[in-house]
Design a protein around this nucleic acid. Structure first.
Lengths: 228, 228
DNA sequence: TGGGTACATTTTGCATACAAGAAATTTACA
DNA sequence: TGTAAATTTCTTGTATGCAAAATGTACCCA
């Protein structure tokens, strides 16, 4: 297998979380991960420390590492943060957005293909990635990084609180946002984005089944790089 | 010495960076840090991986770890991100802010004391921390974390590009922002915040002396917890 | 049968050992 | 004396070893 740095491992785990191959609350055994990537626990631990700093995993001392299980409040926090950042990005949308719009359209095409063909894993990943792409293409690299983490958190919350929000709906929302941008109507794009985030947030069940204390073992061997 | 976890080490290093005890571009030797904290390189590496994920340090493979040296473009990016986030936070400022304002006033008092008495280190730290406090007190914990990293970056840029912006001016800006909030004039607060960030950004020399390739060795022993 | 204690197993936390690459220094030679 | 090759030293990258804590299991006794 090709060389695996701690950063690579961290990436793979994030992909797996976003693609719902790792559920919130799931335990991440150091040795299990090490075996999976054919490296020593040292590298795994370094990767996990990175992910801890980014808020993807928590560690309970001497107990183990767990995929974060956002509380309802933390989920609301993440949505609130996203609203501020994404609205802000669209507010400052300048004129020359030909290239941006082209890129986003390509992304939406990908989303649509995924909705028809691919698994829920890839769908969720792409739907979240749209927001990251938007930020990146608008020239906000740092905010794109932040959004990558925030969308991961909201996606996690969606699986945890059994969202029934449809991928089709999200994809349609994305399309109308891009249309507004194309018309040069940044204000409308902003409004649509806020509505979209609101829809997704409201699709979460407000009173969830008490987050099962995750006996979900088995670290599915599916930590391979995301196939798109 | 009391127990030092990787996270503790990371915190100390961040404090040292914010307090300008570590300059941008400065090399961080693993062994040097390990000796400093009386731990093994393992813990230091784990801490550095955390800091890498948060954008505080870079690693050049087989060469070493360095405090990030934001390019002019990256600095602009960080300011842009801060504008979006901080303006967004003030935009959504609700009514009941008694407690928030009290806290912020206390912080400003601290800033003023630091301006008269303390070293440049503590001053810079507190001035950046104001923005983190604001976010935190407004209930945006996640954005507060993000701002901690972003303000660190802009502070770094300020030392790197020889900002001549005065601490007094910043502190006065902070005070007028809080005053606007107290009047319930969120829109004004937002405008003042944008102006404040703009002032700080413009104080950076646009064409800096080519960032000296940092022969700055010597990892000052001053990684002790910040004294305030 | 139920409960509690002792023992075994597993897993994390941390240090250390060792290999490999980069930089610094010395040596060789023109 | 200056440049290039060779060697030494330093530093990072990764694995492994060991101790401590937590969990699981067997056993004993009432």
């Amino acid at each position: 297998m090709t060389a695996v740095s701690p950063t690579t491992i961290a990436e793979r785990v994030v992909e797996a979380i976003l693609a719902q191959k790792l559920s919130p609350g799931e335990r991440l055994g150091e040795q299990a991960l090490a075996d999976n990537f054919s490296v020593s626990r040292t590298l795994v631990r370094e990767a996990l420390m990175q992910l801890q700093a980014r808020g993807f995993v928590q560690v309970q001392p001497r107990r183990g590492w767990y995929v974060v299980q956002p509380s309802a409040e933390e989920a609301r926090d993440a949505f609130a943060a996203r609203r501020i950042i994404e609205a802000g990005i669209l507010e400052t949308a300048g004129r020359p957005m030909q290239q941006v719009i082209r890129q986003l359209r390509l992304h939406i095409d990908e989303e649509q293909r995924a909705i028809q063909g691919a698994d829920a894993a890839t769908r969720a990943f792409l739907l979240a990635d749209f927001h990251v792409c938007l930020a990146e293409n608008m020239g906000h690299r740092l905010l794109a990084d932040t959004l990558r983490d925030l969308t991961a958190r909201t996606t996690l919350a969606a699986t945890l609180y059994q969202s029934d929000h449809s991928a089709e709906q999200s994809c349609a929302d994305h399309a109308s946002i891009v249309e507004a941008l194309e018309r040069g109507d940044a204000e409308q794009a902003r409004a649509l984005m806020l509505a979209h985030i609101g829809n997704v947030e409201e699709a979460l069940e407000t009173t969830p089944p008490p987050p099962e204390t995750a006996p979900g073992e088995r670290l599915r061997a599916t930590l391979s790089p995301v196939q798109r």
